[in-house]
Simulated assay, not measured.
Amino acid sequence: MSSLLLAAAAAAAAALDTPICADRPAKANAVCTVPAGHFQLEVGAIDWAQIKEGGETVEATALGSSLLKVGVDDRSDVELNITPYVRITGDAGKASGFGDILVRYKYRLSDDDAPVQLALLPFVKFPTAKHDIGDGKLEGGLAIPVSFSLGGAVSATLGPEVDLLADVDGHGRHAALVNVLNISAAVTPRLTIGGELWSSFNFDPAETVSQASADAAIAYVIGNDVQLDAGANFGLTRETPDLEFYGGISARF
C-alpha cells in the first residue's frame, strides 16, 4: 500500500474513533459531516403530530423517514431524505402514501479546531408526494448551521435558513425564513439532552404564516457508531402543530 493510501486509511480510522454525529434529533442541523468514504443512515422510526384549528383536528404520522449520507471528503457529504409512508387524517378525510424527496449537500467551512463551527447546507425538495400530501412543487433553500461551546459540556447551535416556496395558489414563489436556537448538554459521554426554540415565517402572498415551537430531545450513543433518540415539540402559535412526538436511530458504516 502506498504512503498516500496508508495516510487516507489512518485518517478514516481516526474519524471513526469519535462518536457518531447526526442531525437527529431536534430541528437544528449539526455542522459535522460524515467521514470521507463512509455512509450514515438516520431513520425516524415514527413521527406523530397533531394540530387543532377552527374546530378541526388533523393528525400526521410519518414512518421510516430516512436520511442517507455519504461522506465526500473531510469537509462535505451528500444527503438523500425519503419518507416511505405518510398518513394524514382529519375531519375532512384522510390521505396516505409516499412523501417528498429531499436532496442536500453539507459543506463545513470551519477547521476542526475552530471555536465557532460553520457550514453551508443547500437543499432541493422534489415533489414525489401525492397532491393531498404535498404541494406538488419543486422547492429549495439554504441553511447555515453555526455551533459553538458555552463552556464545559454545554454547546449552542443556531440554524438560520431561507427557503424558496411555492405560492398557495400555485402561480409563483415566495421566501420563508426559519431559525432555531438549540442548547444541548452532554450529561454523560454517551447521553445528551437538549432544548430549542424554533420559528418560521412563511411570506406567502395570500397570508403570512408564523410558526414557533419549544422542543426537547434526548440522544444516547451505543459504541461509536449507533445513536438512539427521542423528542417532543410543543407548538407556540395557532398555525404550529400543537404536539409532535418522535423517535429514531442513526448508524454510521
Rank of each mutant, 00 (worst) to 15 (best):
S213H: 03
A219F: 00
V209D: 02
A212C: 09
L197N: 13
A217F: 12
I218L: 11
A214T: 10
N202C: 00
T208I: 10
A219L: 03
Q211Y: 06
L197F: 12
V209G: 08
Q211T: 11
I218K: 01
F203W: 11
S210P: 01
A219S: 13
T208K: 05
V209A: 03
A214K: 00
Q211S: 14
E196M: 01
S200H: 08
D215T: 04
I193R: 04
S210Y: 12
E196S: 13
T192Q: 12
I193H: 09
A206M: 03
W198L: 15
L197G: 15
S199N: 14
E207V: 14
F203M: 14
A219I: 01
A212H: 06
I193T: 11
I193K: 04
P205Y: 05
F201K: 07
A217S: 12
I193Y: 03
A217P: 15
E207W: 07
A216T: 05
A219E: 07
F203V: 09
A219H: 00
S200R: 10
S210I: 11
A212W: 04
A206W: 00
N202K: 08
A214R: 00
S210A: 14
I218A: 07
D204A: 04
D215V: 01
Q211D: 05
V209H: 01
T208M: 05
W198C: 15
A217D: 12
S210C: 04
P205C: 13
P205D: 14
L197P: 11
A219R: 05
G194D: 01
A206K: 03
A217M: 07
V209M: 03
E207Q: 15
Q211W: 01
G194V: 06
S213A: 10
I218W: 01
S199R: 09
A216M: 06
T208C: 07
Q211A: 13
W198M: 10
V209N: 02
L191I: 10
G195N: 00
L197V: 15
S210N: 11
T192K: 06
W198G: 13
A214L: 09
G195A: 01
S200Y: 01
T192F: 06
D204V: 06
V209Q: 08
P205N: 14
E207P: 15
A219W: 00
W198R: 13
V209Y: 09
Q211F: 08
Y220H: 15
D204I: 11
F203C: 04
S199C: 13
I193S: 09
G194E: 04
L191Q: 09
A212I: 07
N202F: 03
D215I: 06
T208H: 05
N202P: 02
N202T: 07
S213W: 06
N202I: 09
Q211I: 09
I218G: 00
Y220C: 05
P205I: 11
D204F: 04
A214F: 09
A216R: 00
I193Q: 03
